[in-house]
């Protein structure tokens, strides 16, 4: 698991909420820190990849899929770069 500074739990939130909430959280994150986002929305994997391509101050450090109580969690690690 990569290093992270803060966690955002968006389990159960459907598209577009995981990304809406992440964007907001990144804005409030100190520059250089990493945000862990935990989502149950499978579509978020491709969407976060697409988003960071044009996002101004966000870098996608890592993504992983983990099992928790029989459900898949899609975990994203986002660094605020500026």
């Amino acid at each position: 698991m990569p290093h992270f500074d803060q966690t955002l739990d968006v389990k159960g939130a459907k598209c577009p909420m995981p990304l809406v909430k992440s964007r907001k959280a990144i804005t409030e994150l100190p520059v250089g820190q990493v945000l862990q986002v935990i989502s149950t929305d499978r579509g978020s994997v491709a969407d976060f990849q697409g988003w960071v391509k044009t996002a101004k101050n966000v870098e996608l450090v890592a993504q992983e899929t983990v099992q928790e109580n029989g459900q898949e969690l899609y975990v994203h690690y986002l660094r605020r770069t500026a």
């Binding site: 598209c15 577009p16 990304l19 809406v20 964007r23 969407d47 697409g50 988003w51 044009t54 996002a55 101004k56």
Partner: peptide, 9 residues
């Protein structure tokens, strides 16, 4: 035009 473009800018 992906929705995240609307969220970003």
């Amino acid at each position: 035009l992906p929705y995240f473009d609307f969220i970003e800018d």
